[in-house]
Write a protein that binds this DNA or RNA. Structure first.
Lengths: 168, 168
DNA sequence: CTTGGAATGTCAACAAGGCTGACATAAATT
DNA sequence: AATTTATGTCAGCCTTGTTGACATTCCAAG
């Protein structure tokens, strides 16, 4: 990286050095572990895994969603998702209903039991997130979200944006 | 969440609502997928997985590190790491040397071939991170790092801090 | 000095959860 | 009627986590 004649400009770009980027990469790695640690512990007790958490989370977020929609959000194969969904349905956490308009579709909803698990998991995850947000403040949080959104693949950003709107 | 009598205070806490926290959770989920997407593609071609990437990354960062140290950074069992290390050693990407002081230890280093792979992977990952950083600016990046660091488990934060120092 | 325990690393076997491929069924579309 | 779409299922593979058993090495207590 050559030094420009304009000092200010090169100052402003210091956050883009390879070393700063590496720190960002390592921060992402370690933070994601923390991010999943609490739900993982809860899931382990109940004999579920991270895949079940993801399914439960997004069914909660989009009640009545179809299998296909869930597939495109989760980015896995239907066989993989189906294995997870089957156990959740068998265990009475998820309800699958044949579509009324299009009877090929299955509409997925959480049962009361499913909502309970979802609440337990997301409370744990929110607790950690809340602590981190409170500790760093609103401006840091705004930056956090901006960078994360910029880091997504464009199709994931679409899903994220759609879910963002449909919130509180 | 009860409304306080002090309007300003409740304004400042708007970023801590459950809805804001949920957005943070979903941002983390989608962004992490983007974060790993590019290296994953490269690894697939070469018959490696994410676990190989992690090992190569941290050996590059801490040349001569021991298996034990790597274990505590990666947070997996030694058996799991060993499988990955074995293939990397067989393929001539990693060199394992018996410790001189303590002959139980193995000191790990990347070979020239290993450094090449590491460079390819981290260039890809840095490209995406750089684009996100450039797009959002230094203040957002500062917030991003602060929140991530606050979200780590304390032992991971120690590893992160140690690696942070040893950088550029 | 010896001996027992702690630390380190290897091998074997198992489970979760990705993947592909092939195939069945029912409903919608052409 | 033929094709496409949405979903589910079976079988089999791979990666990467796990535990258990075991060998080697070091160190410290007797």
């Amino acid at each position: 990286m050559a030094e420009t004649s304009e000092g200010t400009r090169s100052q402003n770009l210091l956050f883009l050095t390879d070393d700063q980027l590496r720190k960002g990469i390592e921060a992402m790695f370690f933070a994601y572990r923390g991010f999943t640690a609490d739900p993982d512990r809860i899931l382990l007790d109940k004999g579920y895994g991270r895949a079940h958490h993801r399914a439960v989370h997004f069914i909660h977020r989009s009640p009545g969603t179809t299998v296909n929609n869930l597939l495109s959000i989760l980015g896995v194969t239907k066989q993989s998702l189906n294995r997870v969904l089957r156990t959740l349905i068998e265990d009475g956490l998820v309800q699958s209903e044949i579509g009324t308009r299009d009877k090929r579709e299955r509409h997925l909803n959480l049962t009361e039991l499913g909502e309970e698990l979802e609440a337990e998991l997301s409370n744990a995850q929110r607790d950690r997130m809340r602590a981190a947000f409170r500790q760093t403040g609103p401006e840091a949080v705004a930056g956090f979200k901006q960078v994360l959104e910029a880091m997504m693949d464009s199709d994931m950003r679409k899903h994220y944006a759609r879910l963002k709107e449909s919130g509180g």
